[in-house]
């Protein structure tokens, strides 16, 4: 898996929800993109990712 540009090895398919928990992200402050598709917050439990996926976890930062 590519997570925020870095290669990761995951052995099992896991839900987006579990990935966020495992990686210690704040759910309220993050949004998730899997292979270019935005995953709505309501779909974190049903959407899953595997070792083949490219995942971006993003949040707000200061900007003009």
């Amino acid at each position: 898996m590519i997570l925020n540009g870095e290669e990761r090895k995951i052995n099992f398919r896991i839900s987006v929800s579990d990935l966020l928990k495992q990686e210690n992200y704040d759910f309220r402050r993050t949004a998730v993109l899997v292979n270019g598709t935005v995953i709505p917050r309501a779909g974190y439990d049903s959407a899953s990712v595997s070792d083949e996926d490219t995942v971006e976890i993003v949040g707000f930062v200061g900007g003009g």
């Binding site: 210690n24 992200y25 704040d26 976890i57 993003v58 707000f60």
Partner: peptide
């Protein structure tokens, strides 16, 4: 605001 990759953990959020 801008949208960027965030690091894991309880980092400060704008």
């Amino acid at each position: 605001l801008a949208v960027r990759r965030v690091n894991k953990g309880g980092r400060e959020n704008i």
